[in-house]
């Protein structure tokens, strides 16, 4: 898939959010989009998914099946988890037993079992986010666009994101993922793009440890990992790796 000299602004009078963006995403690639809040990460991802149309330029060769996980799942809908996923599966042309088995698979996989018959509006933010993830995966996507997918997820669910990304890329799909919290550390082989001042810099080098650096290995309780990583990133430290000790 290619971004071909894309320009985008939200309204005629608004300034350009993105100017002359040209970039290529290869099949099987994982691209992490970095940048400050408001830099235009979400805009770029929505252009990739086809949610937004570029004002000038074009997105070329977008795969036919696109999964998009928005930053905030729209939970204000009168459906239960199962009803919603059934309806979203029907939009993808999935019906009957195939639809049911896909839905069961993702409900199981994402740990949504006890929320199956709960209304979307009554779900916690993280659980609703998982429903958002499930609807994007009902049909294996050729392009998966994840907008801050870790937001609101608990630590147990956070490790699912890299697994799912690996499965999609393993099947030849491309993944575009935005991240402002340094979770990229858990995505081996990811390509880095940076959005700044309305342009996209591709091929941002990963922060390598330099000889003067010292590498610390820390063990922290699950519940505190999020906060600690955010704090360390904010202080300018580079997080190289996050892993789980399995019992």
């Amino acid at each position: 898939m290619r971004f071909d000299r894309i320009w985008f602004r939200y309204a005629r009078r608004a300034g350009w959010a993105l100017t002359e963006v040209t970039a290529t995403v290869d099949p099987g690639a994982t691209v992490v989009v970095l940048g400050r809040n408001g830099a235009g990460k979400s805009t770029l991802l929505q252009l990739a998914a086809g949610v937004l149309e570029p004002v000038r330029g074009a997105v070329l060769d977008r795969p036919p099946v696109v999964g998009w996980v928005p930053e905030r799942f729209p939970a204000d809908q009168p459906f239960t988890t199962e009803q919603y996923l059934t309806a979203m599966a029907a939009l993808r042309g999935l019906r009957g037993p195939r639809s049911r088995s896909e839905i069961d698979h993702w409900i199981e996989r994402l740990g949504l079992g006890e929320h199956r018959h709960i209304r979307l509006g009554a779900l916690s933010k993280g659980t609703a986010q998982k429903v958002g993830l499930a609807q994007a995966l009902l049909v294996p996507p050729g392009l998966l666009v994840l907008d801050e997918p870790w937001e609101g997820l608990d630590s147990a669910a956070r490790t699912l994101v890299p697994q799912i990304v690996a499965e999609v890329t393993g099947a030849g799909g491309a993944v575009l993922i935005s991240d402002h919290r340094g979770e990229i550390a858990s995505l081996p082989g990811a390509i880095r793009w940076s959005v700044q001042n309305g342009t996209v810099v591709t091929g941002v080098p990963a922060p390598e440890p330099v000889p003067e650096d010292v590498i610390l290995e820390l063990a922290v309780p699950r519940a505190e990992a999020d906060q600690l990583m955010a704090r360390l990133s904010a202080e300018g430290h580079r997080i190289l790796r996050v892993r789980e000790e399995r019992a």
């Binding site: 998914a49 086809g50 998009w68 905030r72 939009l91």
Partner: peptide
């Protein structure tokens, strides 16, 4: 529909 749901539908069906 919420705006974001309309966009999710757009991604799903075109």
């Amino acid at each position: 529909e919420p705006d974001v749901q309309r966009r999710l539908a757009r991604v799903a069906v075109g």
